[in-house]
Design a protein around this nucleic acid. Sequence first.
DNA 1: ATCAAAATTCGACCGACATCGTAGTATGGG
DNA 2: CCCATACTACGATGTCGGTCGAATTTTGAT
Lengths: 99, 99
Amino acid sequence: MLAHPEREEIRITSVLHALADPVRLRIVRALAAHEEGISCGVLDLGVTASTLTHHVRTLREAGVVRVRPQGTSRISSLRRDDLDTLYPGLLDGVLAAQR
Amino acid sequence: MLAHPEREEIRITSVLHALADPVRLRIVRALAAHEEGISCGVLDLGVTASTLTHHVRTLREAGVVRVRPQGTSRISSLRRDDLDTLYPGLLDGVLAAQR
DNA sequence: ATCAAAATTCGACCGACATCGTAGTATGGG
DNA sequence: CCCATACTACGATGTCGGTCGAATTTTGAT
């Protein structure tokens, strides 16, 4: 478990699909503001823990976030380098969005 | 019919969802290569005409493309200005994707 | 007026997915 | 060892959406 795609395995359609959900987009925005990574459980997203697990897995399997265990928590962080290399400007454009 | 969202009405989640489909992404790539716009019917996308209609409508309603009637055809073109203004870098990043 | 080409509409089908609740696993502290 | 915390796994459910075929509309040309 906790498999992450290599940079070369990341697919643009998977990334876009991962970003196209309101809850996941809020997660990405939060991670963008915390380069060191955070436990997504601390975010108040209005969904249950199991739903949150689903979303984080979707982001991880798409190659958007990296997840590392730390105690009983999982620290998620944005894969900025990989995404900026593969799709320069995409992440910045998404994060710049007001709506 | 042929309603287009104003620039202020465009939503990032709708744009991302519109771009997250392989067929629609191929349409967008084709439009990016033809600034003057094209009739999407000329593209060989491996889907039926009715499915193509569905995809073009999805792109139009998301604010990704502008569609104007011309004879019995509909000419689609990318809303580059609007997208680049709202989400600078997003479109370029998506188009830069190799996979 | 008739015909052909291009596109749309409608209904149906079916797989994908966001969500939840419950139960289970894992880690660390007392 | 026991317990609490954080997260995961699984199954169920309801909705959304990509796909098609058949029928219809629209436009332009003959």
